[in-house]
């Protein structure tokens, strides 16, 4: 059966420590000044009724990726297991895909001058059955990764138990990254 990858980000467990941010940079040689992954932490509300929110900002690996349908050269393509990759040699850096991404997950690598984004660490880890770097270092185990089509996988069990929100779901992109929303704090 085809793989159905899912990455669950539990906002309740995330503490915004950026260990994932740094691990991603090291694993993927991300150049300075640009990021494949950041966790944004915002305080909402008015003192003393406040809430703190943690938002993972990175490619959500859509099942229906707009970045693939807009690419004129096929440099941005989707593999059989649903992952979206970039053929560096075929990328003409027209930036159409960067604009097409509703999650603003793509950027230009200033050293190679091609478009880049999170790949779930496919080349160095996922293709060797290892979890992406961010998942492996998360201080509080806020990130869970796996194949949701496998009944007994962590992500499948968590998906059955928890309320999952898919970012910008109304756009029909069907992201593989979803989150368990924070239960505490003021939400504005």
């Amino acid at each position: 059966m085809a793989k159905a990858y899912r990455l669950i980000f539990d906002e309740n467990l995330c503490i915004g420590c950026q260990a994932c941010n740094v691990a991603c940079r090291l694993e993927n040689d991300v150049p300075e000044e640009v990021y494949r992954l950041q966790v944004h932490v915002t305080t909402q509300g008015v003192f003393p009724h406040l809430g703190m929110h943690f938002e993972r900002r990175s490619c959500v690996m859509c099942d229906e990726p707009p970045c693939v349908s807009v690419c004129p050269t096929g440099a941005s393509f989707q593999s059989k297991d649903g992952l979206v990759h970039i053929h560096e040699s075929q990328c003409i850096t027209c930036k159409y895909c960067i604009l097409a991404c509703p999650y603003h997950a793509r950027f230009i690598n200033p050293l190679k001058n091609v478009v880049e984004k999170c790949t779930f660490c496919f080349d160095s880890r996922l293709s060797k059955a290892l979890d992406p770097a961010c998942v492996s270092v998360c201080t509080t185990e806020a990130l869970r990764f796996g194949d949701v089509s496998q009944e007994n996988s962590t992500v499948a069990m968590l998906s059955r138990k928890e309320t999952l929100l898919f970012p910008k779901a109304h756009l029909g992109t069907k992201p593989k990254v979803c989150f368990i929303p924070a239960r505490k704090g003021v939400k504005v």
């Binding site: 690419c71 050269t73 003409i92 027209c94 001058n113 478009v115």
Partner: peptide, 25 residues
């Protein structure tokens, strides 16, 4: 304006019917 102008030939040898840019080419 392309980030890699010399690679523009890919526009001529690849076609993506879903991409308005490709259709434009």
């Amino acid at each position: 304006d392309l980030g890699r102008p010399l690679s523009f030939y890919w526009l001529l040898i690849r076609f993506n019917p879903l991409s308005v840019m490709s259709l434009g080419v």
